[in-house]
Design a protein around this nucleic acid. Structure first.
Lengths: 185, 185
DNA sequence: CCAAACTTTCAATACTTACTGAAAGTTATG
DNA sequence: CATAACTTTCAGTAAGTATTGAAAGTTTGG
């Protein structure tokens, strides 16, 4: 699993492999994992998320380890992180002591979670830095200092506005927001 | 420069350092650089950008190297990248053979550039992957396969819509867009 | 068209982040 | 309350990125 399929039994040489549930799932997982890097999410976390996203049934840590060929420690760490984010839920299966995991399947909820996390990790620190620098440069004298202050203030104001918009955008009243957005833009 | 200032000459022990043009600039550069990591931008690139953002005058490669204490190769590579993105412009100064660099100062333009780049690096690959998987899973039989297909289709549609919105949002007719947005959200 | 001034490239290295596997910890049940 | 089933932690290692510095490449003025 998860290797690039070099050849498919019944396909002619050079032809695309015939698709199966498993092959499409593995393509999705592999590619989604590779994309994780671009998104600042590690590959294992992205792959686990992808796997759970397209699994109708909850999966155990062991099933995930086997499917993705990753170690227990890795699976465990990244599952906990996904649960922390709220992208994955632990579920109990009657008559089984192990933890099972399911992914949040609702696309808008996923978006809100990711948006919230990125705001927290990317926008808020920027805003804090900018506000501090604006404050500190406010009382400086000299043309050059004032130019810097003005530039920092413009940046700070912009980031502040963007943050407010993010908050409003990523709240769960999706049905009202999206159509309005489409209309305005 | 760029070290944490352990003490300021005239400040009492333990008190905050008095602010000067240089100290505020250095705080800004240092923090902005540290934030780069979170943003998927390397630290040097973020620091160079920060320095140029608050420099009213164009700077040479050597001035940047000295101010940030980085090597020539590093400065050169990251300046070229910033120029590629369109966040920094090379300018010619009469009577000097060296390249000088200035940053784009307009906040909305900076936003558009960053948004465009992130769309290119993050959204478009996702969309491509999803579309391919939706296509390949379309003809599969069986309940499980169809559930996967449906989930992939929902993801794909969402990312498609998000991409369209990004396009519309990050076009340079800012003055019409932002007020409308504020009203709707 | 030579020499000086400047820019680019790239192999070596340092730094950062992710992953493994085994050991320690926890919890449920007979 | 002992044991077995499962989960978490963590030191060591591997993989991935960023940075340096020196050498090669370009351009410009004399």
């Amino acid at each position: 699993m998860l290797q690039v399929e070099p050849e498919n039994g019944r396909a002619a040489a050079g032809a695309a492999a015939a698709d199966s549930l498993e092959s499409v799932r593995d393509i999705f997982i592999r590619q989604w994992g590779a994309m994780g890097s671009q998104w600042g999410v590690n590959r294992s976390m992205a792959m686990i998320h992808a796997l759970l996203l397209v699994s109708p049934e909850p999966l155990t840590t062991d099933a995930i380890m086997e499917e993705l060929e990753i170690s227990r420690g890795n699976a465990n760490t990244n599952l906990r992180e996904l649960v922390d984010w709220g992208l994955v839920y632990p579920v109990l299966v009657k008559g089984d002591r192990r933890d099972y995991f399911v992914a949040e399947k609702d696309v808008w909820r996923i978006f809100c979670i990711v948006a919230r996390e990125r705001k927290r990790r990317e926008m808020e620190p920027a805003q804090k830095v900018l506000e501090e620098c604006v404050r500190r440069s406010g009382s400086l004298e000299g043309e050059e200092a004032q130019a810097m202050h003005a530039q920092l203030a413009r940046l700070s104001e912009f980031v502040g506005t963007a943050n407010e918009l993010m908050d409003k955008l990523a709240r769960p009243e999706r049905d009202r927001i999206l159509p309005n957005l489409m209309r305005v833009l």
